[in-house]
Amino acid sequence: MKYLCLVYMEADKLRAVPDGECAACGDGFRKSGLLIAAEALQPVETATTVRVRNGNVSITDGPFAETKEQLVGFYLIEARDLNDAIRVAAKIPPAREGSVEVRPVRELQP
């Protein structure tokens, strides 16, 4: 089963987790066959929100919701069950500074 691990952190804590450590973590997951995709994200100030209402595209600056912690990256993983996914999520380096939201992936209905 697929789980999306959404990594949240406060902006001023970003430097506490070196990129090299995150890259090594991703490589480790890939070698174990756990990883489907993982990316780090540019800061939230670079975000643009797109909506389509009555056929019109509206574009606004910034994320949908303002929170103290921001989305800084994600790991899409393959895990046997939630306990397995929690074990993987606990190894994601920013988990010790911010938080990781583990969400099961939903199969689209035909």
Partner: peptide
């Protein structure tokens, strides 16, 4: 069901 919480006794360390 949806998050697939397993039906198991946790591992010793947990």
């Amino acid at each position: 069901r949806q998050a697939r919480i397993p039906y198991e006794v946790p591992a010793r360390e947990e």
